[in-house]
Amino acid sequence: MSAPSTPPAADAARRPARGRPPRLDQARTVEAALVLLDESGLDALTMRRLADAVGVQAGALYRHFATKGDLLTAMAERMLADCSTPPPDPDWSGRLTALARRLRTALLAHRDGARVYAGTHSTGAGTLGFAETLIGVLGEAGFGPQEAARTALTVVHYTVGHTLEEQAALQPGDQGPADPERLREAVADAGLPHLTAALPVLTGTDFTAQFEFGLGLLLRGLRGLRRDGSGPGA
């Protein structure tokens, strides 16, 4: 008879020790939730499955998380835990670019990370620290408080929205942002010359190139506002 296989490290880390029930720890519970998220996706992450993973009754979770929304907020906070350090680039646009990339990377680090983050309103150190750094960069560039806040929201919304589409396209079994052949056939049948010329991009999966292009548009627009004196700092 062959020896039993060794369980994955993630399973071993979240399995409670034998004996008395473990004391529920919020940080450990959030880490276990992120492991489950990576394994099965957001739709399969339930409070019952999480309770089983950390070895407690489902009701015990509600002492730390009154709702699943509270759990998702804590998970989003954990994702941004290492994002608030000010980038070293001396140029404000370079720092802004680095922060947007950092947010995208943090969301891509977990399956359905953008879906978890979208709509949460954490007041934890990670989220507030990232927002403080982002708005601070804009303030140093000459943006007033209101303009800095609106610009920061625009950058965050663009990054989260792009990453939502990116992760949806990369779910197991998907072929990308659209079925390439189906899209090509539909465009050809409809006789649409502009879409025909754009098909290489529309059927592509270089999400980083697309993200960088959109981020570049935002930055060029912001620089233009500052140059002509009609926007922030005027």
Rank of each mutant, 00 (worst) to 15 (best):
P145F: 05
R111A: 06
L134K: 02
R226V: 15
P90N: 06
L192M: 13
E166P: 04
G126P: 03
A58L: 00
V201Q: 13
D25H: 11
Y62E: 02
S122L: 08
Q210V: 10
G19D: 12
R95K: 14
A188I: 00
A149G: 12
L80Y: 00
V155H: 00
T97C: 05
R14Q: 13
P4T: 13
V54L: 07
H194T: 14
A10T: 14
V156K: 08
G94K: 01
E140A: 14
W92I: 02
Q210L: 12
L225V: 09
D38C: 10
L222D: 04
G59D: 09
I135P: 00
T46Q: 05
A9T: 07
V54Y: 01
T29I: 10
G161K: 01
F211C: 10
V30A: 03
G229H: 12
L192I: 10
V155D: 00
L217H: 11
D91M: 08
V187G: 07
G144M: 05
L192S: 14
H110L: 08
A148C: 08
S84G: 06
L45P: 02
E132V: 11
L34N: 02
T154Y: 02
L61M: 09
G41I: 05
R182F: 13
G231S: 08
A131K: 15
R63C: 01
T159L: 04
A178G: 05
A33H: 06
A53I: 06
R23K: 13
V187T: 10
D228V: 07
V56C: 09
L138H: 06
D112C: 05
R115F: 13
R28W: 04
C83G: 09
L71D: 02
L225H: 13
D82I: 02
A125K: 14
L215T: 07
R14G: 03
G119W: 04
A76V: 03
L61G: 01
G191L: 08
F207E: 03
R220Y: 09
D228S: 06
R182T: 14
Q57H: 15
L164K: 00
A98H: 01
R78Y: 01
V30R: 03
E165I: 07
A32G: 10
F211W: 10
D206Q: 08
A234E: 12
Q57M: 06
F65H: 04
P177M: 09
R95D: 01
G221T: 14
A10E: 14
G113Q: 02
G233C: 07
Q146H: 15
L202H: 10
K68A: 06
A66Q: 15
A188Q: 13
L199M: 11
R182C: 12
D189P: 00
R111H: 13
G142Q: 01
G19A: 12
L103Y: 03
D43C: 02
A141E: 08
S5Y: 03
E31T: 14
P180G: 06
A3P: 02
S40N: 08
V155G: 01
A149N: 10
L217R: 14
